[in-house]
Design a binder for these strands. Structure first.
Length: 259
DNA sequence: ATGCCGGGTACGACCCGA
């Protein structure tokens, strides 16, 4: 089974691109971030016609996440627990049945956190604390669990072409990285790093010719429970998609699993 | 250089992203 994540930066602007990619790659499950629409505005029929079940957690103008799955959803959960006042649509989780059990797939759009001298940065850190509590609960179930999406975290220097330019940014500063390590240290495996030590960027800014100069960062991740990590066979960053016409600034990242 | 690009909202120019 292949499970992918892709921050598409607006489903309305990226519908045709996503359709093309799905026809080419045919992943089993795709987690989308920044759909930037309410649920009613999501072109679900387009993807149902390609054989996908569609579950969305949308929001007007910003944020918004969705899961497309060839497997039927047994359960769907929307929103990150821990703050009733948080109205931002940044987490959707699906549970799927397999012959040998279940797989739980949690799609996140973690807050960017910039500028760091505004409320956005403490919101990011609090969101990561809430995510850690949520993941603790999930790991207690001892199931194959895949936490994937746009984490807005550059884990290590190797994950940026020019790490010195990012130091101090909300994506790459001590408080953010500490929270990310705390999350990982619950027992999650960074799927990409389980298969390679090489740089593998997933985002290139639209500005300053970042793509042309390969000035990228790795911020889209798949974090795996032990039961999922044991079944991982490959990870692919679809960087060619960044060179397509009217691309997102992020590219798809896909894990292949023996289930 | 806090704008460069690009999407959303809405139709002029902001807000937002990373």
């Amino acid at each position: 089974m292949r499970i992918a994540t892709w921050n598409i930066n607006g489903i309305k602007a990226r519908q045709a691109l996503l359709e093309t990619w799905l026809k080419q790659q045919s992943p089993d499950i795709v987690c989308l971030q920044e759909i930037k629409t309410v649920d009613e505005g999501f072109p679900r029929e387009t993807f149902e016609a390609l054989g996908y079940n569609v579950e969305t957690f949308g929001q007007k103008s910003w944020n918004g996440v969705a899961i497309l799955s060839k497997l039927r959803f047994d359960e769907v959960h929307r929103g990150l627990p821990g703050d009733e006042a948080d109205e931002q649509a940044r987490l959707i989780e699906g549970v799927f049945s397999l012959a040998q059990g279940v797989v739980r797939v949690c799609c996140i759009y973690l807050p960017n956190g910039n500028p760091v001298d505004t409320e956005k940065f403490p919101y990011k850190l609090r969101w990561m604390e809430r995510l850690t509590a949520f993941v603790e609960d999930r790991l207690k179930r001892e199931e194959p669990f895949v936490l994937l999406g746009d984490f807005n975290i550059i884990p290590e220097a190797v994950d940026a072409r020019h790490p010195e330019n990012w130091w101090g940014d909300a994506l790459y500063r001590p408080e953010s990285l500490k929270q990310f390590r705390t999350l990982k240290n619950l027992g999650l495996t960074d799927a990409l790093r389980a298969v390679t030590d090489a740089p593998a960027y997933t985002f290139w800014d639209f500005q300053e010719g970042a793509w042309r100069r390969d000035n990228g960062i790795r911020i889209d991740h798949l974090l795996l429970s032990p039961q999922a990590a044991d079944r991982l066979t490959a990870v692919q960053v679809h960087r060619d998609v960044r060179g397509w016409d009217k691309p997102s600034d992020h590219v798809p990242v896909e894990g292949t699993f023996l289930f």
